[in-house]
């Protein structure tokens, strides 16, 4: 059984913590670029950590659609369900 989106969201939030320099509260609608002020390199490092944790591949093709933490959790859920 794959974890629920909420469980995935909680794990993703933990993985984001090291990149959350300003300790912004993480909600599903928190954005990487504006709220967390991450540049594209940090986003890539963060995604790599998420990929390793869930043992999944997040293709570059879907990156433009992943603006918020919630969207990443959804995407991981979809990939795990495939």
């Amino acid at each position: 059984m794959t974890p629920s989106t909420t469980e995935i969201f909680d794990q993703v939030s933990e993985l984001i913590a090291p990149f959350n320099q300003k300790s912004v509260p993480i909600k599903p609608e928190t954005t990487f670029a504006t709220d967390l002020e991450l540049d594209s390199l940090s986003v890539m490092d963060m995604l790599a950590a998420i990929e390793d944790h869930f043992d999944v591949t997040v293709p570059l093709n879907i990156l433009p659609d992943l603006e918020t933490v919630g969207q990443v959790a959804e995407a991981i859920k979809d990939i795990l369900d495939e």
Partner: peptide, 18 residues
């Protein structure tokens, strides 16, 4: 499309295995 860490064979290998 998948990216691996610059010049990092171990990272590439992990991604290929996945």
């Amino acid at each position: 499309v998948v990216r691996f860490t610059h010049n990092d064979p171990e990272n590439l290998e992990r991604r290929l295995a996945r």
